[in-house]
Amino acid sequence: MTDPASDPIVTCVGDIAFADAACLLATHGLHLHHVAAGEPIPGSYWGEPEAGIIAHTVYVRDDTPVHSMLHESCHLIVLPPERRALVHTDATDSVPEEDATCYLQIVLAGQLPGVGSDRLMADMDAWGYTYRLGSTRAWFEQDAEDARAWLVERGLLVG
């Protein structure tokens, strides 16, 4: 568990309309479950306040960063349904799936009212995501062709 006082300032689930996030995830066959303040987050790989995943459900609290909610959701979205149903806490060890997950979370942020791709990329940088080119935006715009192609090939993005 991290010390909330030392966490960077990023957009959290409590800063946006929960219904908007739940609706976005539902379009991908996922259920967004709200966990009460101070309660443990089921399926959280990194521990609170990070989002958790179990099968088709994403668990968040109001203090869960939106980038975490989207990242864990995208881990589930990139999986075929039969693999998704078996997920508990850790979705993948595949580099292509991880890259596709990072790319897709930025795309989906653009569909989430009150967030947007620009804000999400800034939050990812503030939280400590690292990329060869030095920033999330540089990776997304200049070095993520393979992640985009992976998503297009599987019908998760339009070419």
Rank of each mutant, 00 (worst) to 15 (best):
W127Q: 04
R61N: 09
Q111S: 13
D125F: 04
Q111P: 03
V58F: 00
T92W: 05
H33Q: 12
R83T: 03
T92Q: 08
R137F: 02
T136G: 10
D93V: 01
T89Q: 13
A26Y: 00
G114P: 13
L104C: 12
R132K: 11
Q111F: 11
Q111L: 15
A36R: 12
V107L: 15
L25T: 13
C102W: 01
P42D: 02
E50V: 09
D62G: 15
G110R: 13
E39M: 14
H33S: 08
T136W: 09
L86K: 14
R137N: 01
A26M: 01
P113C: 02
V58G: 00
L76I: 05
A85Q: 09
V107K: 12
G116S: 05
S135Q: 11
A138V: 00
G47S: 12
H67E: 10
D62Q: 15
C23F: 02
E48W: 07
Y45S: 05
A100H: 11
R132I: 09
T27H: 13
D125G: 08
A126E: 04
A85N: 01
H67Q: 12
P65A: 05
G38M: 11
A37G: 09
A55F: 00
Y45I: 01
E50S: 11
A19M: 06
T136F: 06
L112K: 06
L30Y: 05
R61S: 14
C74G: 12
L86D: 12
S117A: 15
V87E: 02
E39P: 05
A138C: 08
G29P: 00
P80V: 05
A122E: 12
R83C: 06
R119W: 03
G110Q: 09
I53A: 14
D118V: 13
G29A: 00
